[in-house]
Nucleic acid binder design. Structure first.
Lengths: 152, 152
DNA sequence: TTAAATTGAATTGTGTGCAATTAATCTTGA
DNA sequence: TCAAGATTAATTGCACACAATTCAATTTAA
């Protein structure tokens, strides 16, 4: 395959990744509208439902989001009453996020979302599992991997 | 698996998709900076290198982007001198995008990008091919598929 | 014990992404 | 033919994403 061949969209791995990601977020929208959440707010709430209390820093690590993205998301979630933001007493730099009762209650309403999303994806379980495995492998081998720094 | 189990990030398919996509775009950045292109501008140029001339409508279809995203991208690429925007004579509503000589020349500089990106991804060819196939399958079965409308 | 370095959020600026709307143009059918 | 409906870009408004910077709090190291 020549270099120009590799510049064709159909030969790209990253382009379908990018398209699928956007598409899936778009598919979530009608389901999340009912919860008054955007997709970013939804994954933030998912992390909170699992942990109840996390620092902003920890949230960023779990969600792969930086403070520039997370700060306004957390302020919005606080405004909606789903989380509380307070400074850590141990370390004033650190922002502790905790679930409110309202945020906990939201989990019940969100419980049907994964199932409803699954209906949109017409692939057999085998393929879905394989895709899940490969994406995780991709994340592990590609994220925070310095192998391409030499070419910068 | 209970409904709450499905709300864990680790059990999500869409979350790693979303993370991988963002991460891969981030990896492109240093390579594309040298071309003075963002990732969206890059895929737009890839489409142009394949077709030389396309309407804005066609570009949107190929790239899965709507006019709200594409309009500013095309204006920026015009400002950079890589494409020209002109109204179709047949149909004044239609916007024709064509490559400029400068845009064509850019392809030579971009030729090394796919190879350099490949260095960042430490997965064997087998897995990459499988991932490529599954993502395309995912796109085909999920995009413009109304199966989830009933649940809205 | 300070000065320097590090850390964690917040801020700023640019660029998407998409729904909803608008405006211009084209098509078509009575 | 001409009005109604469809089509196409462009615009607008909101919400990310993220790099770069700033600022305050904390840690470290001389």
């Amino acid at each position: 395959m020549t270099n120009y061949e590799q510049l064709k969209l159909s030969n790209q791995l990253c382009f379908p990744l990018y398209v699928c990601s956007k598409e899936v977020v778009r598919k979530y929208k009608p389901l999340l509208d009912r919860l008054d959440l955007t997709y970013t707010q939804y994954i933030t709430m998912m992390a909170m439902w699992e942990h109840e209390q996390l620092s902003a820093k920890e949230l960023g690590t779990i969600l792969y989001l930086d403070s520039g993205t997370l700060t306004p998301v957390l302020k919005t979630l606080e405004k909606k009453g789903f989380v509380e933001r307070q400074r850590s007493k141990d370390d004033e730099r650190s922002l502790i996020i905790s679930l409110t009762p309202s945020g906990m209650a939201l989990q019940e309403q969100a419980a049907s979302v994964p199932e409803e999303m699954a209906k949109c994806i017409d692939m057999d379980m085998e393929d879905l599992k394989a895709l899940h495995r490969l994406l995780h492998k991709f994340m592990e081998t590609s994220i925070d991997n310095d192998s391409c720094k030499s070419s910068i």
